[in-house]
């Protein structure tokens, strides 16, 4: 049996990804996380001196705090198996990537383990976020200078 034939057989036999079910679960999980965050934002707007715009910073920090508790008590991986992208895409998923790596590598010490492995999973998100922000902002600034677009 050659590779092509086997790949076809493998596709036939392997259970299919339940796409609709996964999409629904991702939608629900992601939606609920964002809804919770919206309530957290309301809390900061009501009890502290934050506007709708500025409340997003403490909200993000609070959500990552929740993510720490869920990761530490071993619940985030269960949410992840259920929700898929629904729990990976929100900032809590970013938090989970950092925090799970930090906890895992505690056994190698705080400097060599936690310190150097914390961004093992999430580092690439920062890299591509920064680089794309740089490119986008550079292009836009040049275009503004040339008078093609305005701020």
């Amino acid at each position: 049996m050659d590779e092509k034939k086997y790949a076809k057989l493998e596709q036939e036999i392997s259970p299919k990804i339940p796409l609709m079910k996964n999409i629904l679960k991702a939608f629900l999980t992601g939606g609920i996380i964002c809804l919770v965050a919206q309530f957290v934002a309301l809390f900061y707007m009501t009890y502290f001196d934050f506007t709708e715009r500025t409340a997003s910073n403490p909200t993000v920090a609070t959500m990552i705090f929740f993510s720490m508790l869920l990761t530490g008590f071993g619940l985030y991986k269960k949410i992840g198996q259920f929700g898929g992208a629904g729990s990976a895409v929100p900032i809590t998923g970013f938090g989970n990537a950092v925090i799970s790596a930090a906890i895992e590598h505690k056994s190698e010490g705080y400097v060599l383990g936690v310190g150097s492995n914390m961004f093992k999973l999430a580092g690439s998100v920062i890299l591509f976020g920064v680089f794309s922000a740089f490119v986008v902002a550079l292009i836009k600034t040049i275009l503004v200078k040339l008078g093609v677009v305005s701020w």
């Binding site: 993000v60 920090a61 990761t71 530490g72 900032i91 950092v98 925090i99 930090a102 914390m118």
Partner: peptide, 15 residues
């Protein structure tokens, strides 16, 4: 800054 700084901080506290 809040996303990254809190991820680092809570990551370390969690560890």
């Amino acid at each position: 800054s809040s996303g990254i700084s809190s991820a680092i901080l809570f990551g370390f506290i969690a560890a």
